[in-house]
Amino acid sequence: MYLTRFRINIARIGARRLLSSPQMMHAAVLSSFAEAPKPDADGPRILWRVDRDGAAATYLYIVSPARPDLTHLVEQAGWPETGRWETFEYGPFLNRLTKGEQWAFRLTANPVHTARRKNDEPTKITAHVGLRHQIDWLLKRQEHAGFRIVEKAPERRLIPELDRYELLVHNRRNLVFRKGGQKDPVTVVAVTYDGRLEVTDPDALRRTLTHGLGRAKAYGCGLMTLGKA
C-alpha cells in the first residue's frame, strides 16, 4: 500500500476544474495508474481526499495498492517546472498499529441514513445535515472500524451534549455533479471530521484505512488518515 500527497496549485484553471467536479478528480486519480486495480470487495481500493486548509494550501491525498504517477496532475493542476508529489510506503506504518495507541485523525465522509417520509414508501438514502446526527453517524461505526473516539474531560466540555468527544466536524459541502447519462444531478453531502482516536482493534483499523469508511468513496469520501496526537 502507498500513501501519496500532492499539492494543488489553485491558481491554475485546470486545478479549479478538478476541484469543482468530484467526477473529474476521480478520473484524474484513476489515470495515475497504468493499470488501475480492479474493484474487489475484499481487497484494498484506491481512496482519495482533498484537504483545503484555509488559504495555506490545498492537498490531494491518495491511498492505493499500487504506486501512482501524478505527472499529468503536475502539468494540469500543479507547478510544471518545480511541482512534485510525495509517495510513502504505507505498509510499515499500518503494520505497527497497536491496540491502545492514540492518534489524531482526519476523515472526509458522506454521513447518510435510510429514511422514508410515509410508511408505504420505500426507504431512501438521505444525508445527515445536523451536527448531532453527523457525530452519531461516526460513533456508530467506530467499534466496527477498529477505534474509539477519545472523550474529553468533563471540565473541558463547553456544550455537554455536543462537546463530549475530541472531535470537530467542519467543512460541510454539497458535491453536485451529473453521473453518466442521468438527467438530474447527483448531490453528495461531505463533511470533514478532525479528532483524536484510540486504537481498539488494529486489524479492523488497518482495513478502515485501506478500504475506506462509508459511502461515496469514488467522490473523495471515506479516506481516513492518522497523525501524531
Rank of each mutant, 00 (worst) to 15 (best):
A41H: 11
D42I: 02
G43D: 10
G43E: 09
R45L: 03
L47Q: 03
L47E: 02
W48R: 03
W48H: 15
R49E: 06
V50Q: 04
D51F: 04
R52L: 05
D53G: 00
G54S: 09
G54T: 08
A57T: 09
A57W: 10
T58L: 08
Y59I: 02
L60D: 00
L60R: 00
V63C: 11
V63D: 01
R67Q: 15
P68E: 06
L70S: 03
H72T: 11
L73K: 08
V74D: 02
V74W: 00
Q76H: 09
Q76Y: 04
G78C: 07
P80A: 10
E81H: 14
E81S: 14
E81G: 09
G83S: 08
R84I: 12
E86W: 07
E86T: 10
F88N: 10
F88K: 12
F88Y: 08
Y90F: 15
F93T: 07
L94H: 01
N95G: 08
N95P: 00
N95F: 01
K99P: 01
G100S: 05
E101K: 06
E101S: 13
Q102A: 10
W103M: 01
W103Y: 15
A104T: 08
F105W: 01
F105M: 15
T108E: 07
A109G: 11
N110S: 10
P111E: 05
V112C: 09
V112S: 12
T114S: 14
T114M: 12
A115D: 12
R116N: 10
R116A: 13
R117W: 03
K118R: 15
K118T: 12
T123G: 11
I125R: 15
A127G: 11
A127H: 10
V129S: 11
G130M: 07
H133A: 15
Q134V: 01
I135D: 00
D136Y: 05
D136A: 15
W137E: 03
W137N: 04
L139D: 04
L139P: 00
L139V: 08
Q142N: 11
Q142Y: 07
E143G: 02
A145N: 12
G146W: 07
G146C: 07
F147D: 03
I149W: 01
V150R: 09
V150W: 03
V150E: 09
E151C: 01
K152Y: 05
R156Q: 14
R156P: 00
R156N: 13
R157L: 06
L158I: 12
I159R: 05
I159K: 05
P160N: 04
L162I: 01
L162T: 06
E166I: 00
L167D: 02
L167H: 02
L168S: 13
L168C: 08
L168E: 14
